[in-house]
Structures are given as structure tokens and as C-alpha cells.
Write a protein that binds this DNA or RNA. Structure first.
Lengths: 157, 157
DNA sequence: CGAAAAACTGAGCATATTGCCCAGTTTTAT
DNA sequence: ATAAAACTGGGCAATATGCTCAGTTTTTCG
């Protein structure tokens, strides 16, 4: 067994609903033996189903209430260098290489508008960065969720 | 105490590093009493420092290896309706209202390119959606992290 | 500055959980 | 049909948890 099956998705759904639930309680809820839940959890862990705990930490609560998406046009063949420089800026919380209009899209958090301006300046100062477009996030219109995907059951990859 | 302080950031850092650590082990590591760690954790929970567990679930492992960012131009005064429609599409895992070039930016996952095309068609079919721009994510250049923010210690909000 | 409130400490208790082992049964893969 | 994988439920020892408590320390506020 190395693809996610219906029992795994049910387990993930239950976990998502109540992340602090004990293995015993999960087993009860799912009608499985405790050992099975343990074994399945261990397997999900091994399969890298779980991303970092950091994703659960709200930057706003850390003092960074502003969020922005900054797309960047990068000089040819300098993408990796730019990425390395970006990773040195603490407020850059993630960055993706893109196939599309821009070369790179990052998510940035900031203390306030001034801070954002400063960060943007920093990004513009990176060798290889040609142009940036900044879009301030005004609010979550669809809050993050994977529950609808889980509810559909497993997909054959 | 209702702002995050240095002890909280240290606690979050330790948690981020080892999410399955017991309260007893965390207390030991941080040189605090068990009760204090428990009390602090409870407070962080109350303060909504922790976002949903779902954010830790990797859509790729669920059978959605493709990710794309789709920006959308929306007809005036239809933003909320569009958002409601988007939330009915399971593959739309989050969407932000923007101040910038586009009105809305969403993150979409898909099984394959065909699936992505289908989803895009669905989005274009929503009343109020004028235009979309799709950028396929080719890879994480800066993987998600808030550790550098935590390492800086608390920020006064 | 002093008093009060908040936060921290360490001890303790009863109960629950965990990691792991085991042998038997059921399900899946070949 | 057979073998391997997965599941089951039982069990054990060690540890953790939720919670209480009284004393101490730190922070807040007038």
C-alpha cells in the first residue's frame, strides 16, 4: 500500500477536524484498531503527506498583519541566484517558480505599509530582478482548505 | 499578557522543529515548568496563533500534483458572488482579494494538465469573472517557512 | 514606591496515552 | 491457491496528560 486510500482520507479528515485528538480517540471514531491508526499515521508521515508545522503558524499573530503577493520578472539564467537572495529575506515566506506571465511569485508578510515598501526595495535591489508587481492581500475570500478534496475520497495519481 | 513574547516565539520554534513533542519535553527544552508550557499553549490556541491543520496536508499526496496560481479580473460589485462560486470548486484551495493589478488571486490544485484546463473553464464560467490569468507553479524556489520571523523574536503589533 | 494581579514554579494525583510486542485473522497481490 | 501485507485486539511498562494547589516571582498600575 503506497497510495492514499479512502481510510487515509477519512483519517486525515478526522485529524483536520480535531488535530489534538489522540490515536485512541481517532481509532474509535474511525472504527479501526489503535494499531492500525498508528501504523497508518506512521505511513502517512513516511510518505510526506504532512507538510511543516510552520504552515500552521499565523504570521499576523507574530506581528506581521500585512500580506502581499509579489511577482517578479527575472533576468535570464539568474532565477536560482534570485531565489537564494530571496530566502535571505525573513519576510519572504514562500516563493514559487512559474510558467506564465512572471517568472516567480512570492508571498511576503510585513509589519505595516512602510515595512512592505522597504521589503519591496530590498527585492528590487537583488541582482537579476528586473521588475516586480506587488499586490496587497485584502482578505481571504476563500480561506485555505483541502477538506473538499478529502471529502471526494482518493484520487489515483 | 496578550502579545506574543520571546518565550512564545521560542516555544513556537521548538514546536515547529518537532511538532510531536510532548509538553514535558518542550518544558525541559525551554527551561520552563510543564504548567507554564501548558498555559502558554492554551493561550496561543485562544489567540488563534494556530491556523488549520489542513495547511499541513500536501495536496500532491492526495493525488493533485499540479498547482497553479490563477488571477482573476472580476466585474464590479460581483466579487463576493464570485468568491462564493469559487468556494464550491474543490480544487480551489484558497483565494485572496487583492489591491493591485487583479482583483483576486487563487491557488488551485489539479490532477493533471487536462484537469487544470477543466477547472479553468469552470472558473471562466462563473458569472462576474471577466478574465483569468493562469500561472503554473513549476517548483518551490523558497519553501514555506516562518522560522526566520520566529528567530527574530517578537514584533510589537 | 507599594500593592495587587498575573504569571511561573514544582509537587502531586488519577487516569489516559504511547510505543511496542505478539499471535491470530482477514484482505490483497501475484 | 499461496504468500505477503494489513488489520485486529490483547497486553505491558513507561510516560504523559489534565488538573489542582500553595508558594514565589514578575509585571502592572495607581
Amino acid at each position: 500500500m503506497h497510495a492514499i486510500d479512502g481510510t487515509d482520507t477519512r483519517l486525515l479528515t478526522a485529524l483536520a477536524k480535531d488535530p489534538r485528538r489522540t490515536v485512541v480517540a481517532l481509532a474509535q471514531k474511525l472504527g479501526l484498531s489503535r494499531n492500525t491508526v498508528q501504523a497508518r499515521m506512521a505511513q502517512l508521515e513516511r510518505m510526506s503527506v504532512f507538510l511543516s508545522f510552520e504552515r500552521r503558524i499565523n504570521p499576523a499573530a507574530l506581528g506581521y498583519p500585512l500580506m502581499a503577493f509579489i511577482s517578479v520578472h527575472v533576468q535570464q539564467q539568474k532565477l536560482q541566484q534570485v531565489a537564494d537572495e530571496l530566502s535571505g529575506i525573513p519576510e519572504v515566506i514562500e516563493a514559487y517558480g512559474l510558467a506564465g506571465q512572471a517568472d516567480l511569485l512570492m508571498r511576503v508578510v510585513a509589519v505595516d505599509a512602510e515595512d512592505l515598501f522597504r521589503i519591496n526595495g530590498k527585492i528590487l535591489g537583488i541582482d537579476g530582478v528586473e521588475r516586480t508587481d506587488t499586490s496587497l492581500a485584502m482578505g481571504e475570500l476563500v480561506p485555505f482548505r483541502v477538506e473538499p478534496l478529502l471529502a471526494r475520497g482518493p484520487r489515483t495519481p
